[in-house]
Amino acid sequence: MNTMKPYPRLMLWVMAATIYSCAPKPYATTNKVYRQQAKQYAGMLKVQPAPVPADGAPTVVNWIGTTNFNMRKPNYVIIHHTAQGSCDSTFRTFTLPRTQVSAHYVICGDGTINHMLNDYLRAWHAGLSKWGNVTDMNSCSIGIELDNNGLVPFQPQQINSLLVLLDSLKHRYNIPAANFIGHGDIAPSRKVDPSAYFPWQQLAEKGFGLWYGDTAKIILPVDFNSKRALRIVGYDTRDTTAAIKAFKRHFIPADSTTGTELNEGEKKILFSLMEQSE
């Protein structure tokens, strides 16, 4: 029989709650800064733009606010690996102003999904990059970092969490399958993430990214040009060697460390992807 009176038990609960609320929260300071910055940007959105004068045109007297608008939405997802030793190291990097780098999501090795920035806000994850005609990938994409040093395979639970997150983002923002790409794809001269260990085929089978089928029956056109095909897929071909390496790392990882030329079989893969991209 429990002889403990209700009041002592209530006091224990109150004490426990008090201790928890007073416990140090490692990112309380940066969370406060986040709220302050978000409030600042919200204030900027409320400001009525000043009229733009033009020679020979009457001066606009009134601000006429349209009622037909919404938030800009992301249209790409860029996948990275952190190249750091742990999720905690990445959190520190992404909350130090001097690093000037961030992402919307960080997925730890145990599959935990950490949301670090509102999807509608512009994270600093892509850097100097290009995909097709888009030269400011930060402004139109969501950045996802996977806790991995780039030298080992990704954890199954981590990829499972990534698939769940990608499914949510794809349906929420109507992101095309072809627009799920890697950091190394959009910055081939600078980046290699998410490394040749990343399971792009597994993602493509779920509708996140392009892939190819049986290419044995493909007959390449006589005038097939690999550089042009890479450009049609989306790669920045100003450095053709880097573009070929990035292409291999994504679509032919087993051959990604050897050679900078494409054999006939690899050209057929590229041709198949080019046809899907046109």
Rank of each mutant, 00 (worst) to 15 (best):
S102D: 12
K39G: 10
Q48T: 05
T260L: 03
I244C: 04
H125M: 02
H250K: 11
K245A: 13
I252N: 04
T67I: 08
S89C: 00
L128M: 03
Y105G: 05
S139Q: 12
N149R: 10
S139L: 10
T66F: 06
T237I: 15
N174P: 08
T241V: 13
V77E: 01
Q100I: 15
P74W: 03
T29Q: 12
D110Y: 04
Y197E: 03
R35D: 14
C22F: 11
A177R: 15
L220R: 13
N118F: 00
V101E: 14
T18Q: 04
S129T: 06
N118V: 00
S256K: 05
P199L: 03
M4A: 10
I218L: 13
S21N: 06
T257R: 09
G213L: 13
N31H: 08
Q40I: 06
S89Q: 06
F271Y: 15
N138V: 09
P188E: 15
M116V: 00
A16P: 01
Q158L: 04
F198M: 04
G56R: 04
L151A: 13
I19S: 06
F154Q: 03
I78C: 00
A28E: 14
W200D: 01
K25N: 09
L166P: 08
D193R: 07
K32N: 11
D55M: 04
L210M: 12
I159R: 00
I186Q: 10
S102E: 11
M1V: 08
G150K: 07
P53F: 05
P74Y: 04
H115M: 00
Q48P: 01
T93D: 11
S256I: 02
L162K: 05
